[in-house]
Computed example of a mutant assay.
Amino acid sequence: MPLAEALAALAALVRPVAAADASPANAVGAVAAQDVVVGAGRPAERRALRDGWAVAAAAIVGASPYAPVRLGRPPAWVEAGAALPAGTDALLPPDSLGADPREIEVEAAIGEGTRAPGTEMPPGTRLLASGKRVSALCGLALAAAGFDRVSVRRPRLRLLAAAPDTLSPLLAAWIAARGGVTEAAARPAEVGDLAAALLAPGTDAVIVIGGTGPGRSDASAAALARAGRLHAHGIALRPGESAGFGEAAGRPVLLLPGRPDAALAAWLALGRPLLAALAGAGPDATLTLPLTRKVASVIGLTEVVFLRRTIASAEPLGGAEIPLHRLGRADAALLVPPAHEGYPAGTPVEVLPL
Rank of each mutant, 00 (worst) to 15 (best):
D51S: 08
L291G: 01
P65V: 08
L307N: 08
A249I: 01
G244V: 03
L287W: 08
G213H: 12
L224D: 08
I322W: 10
D284R: 10
T286H: 13
V28P: 02
L335C: 12
S130E: 12
A219W: 12
L307V: 13
Q34T: 06
A161W: 00
L352S: 13
V17N: 09
R50S: 08
A185W: 06
V55E: 00
L256S: 07
S130L: 10
A27K: 02
E350N: 09
P252L: 07
A80Q: 11
P117I: 00
G139H: 11
R251L: 10
I60C: 09
A320M: 12
R156I: 09
D21I: 00
T302F: 09
P122N: 03
V69Q: 10
A285Q: 15
E105H: 15
V78I: 14
V295Q: 00
P117T: 00
A86V: 11
D193H: 13
A312V: 11
A19P: 09
R309D: 04
A82G: 03
L264V: 00
A8D: 14
R50D: 04
I110N: 15
A145T: 00
D51L: 05
R251Q: 11
L354C: 15
A99Q: 12
A56Y: 05
G318E: 02
W174G: 04
V191R: 00
A32K: 04
P101D: 04
G246T: 01
L160W: 02
S23E: 01
G328K: 13
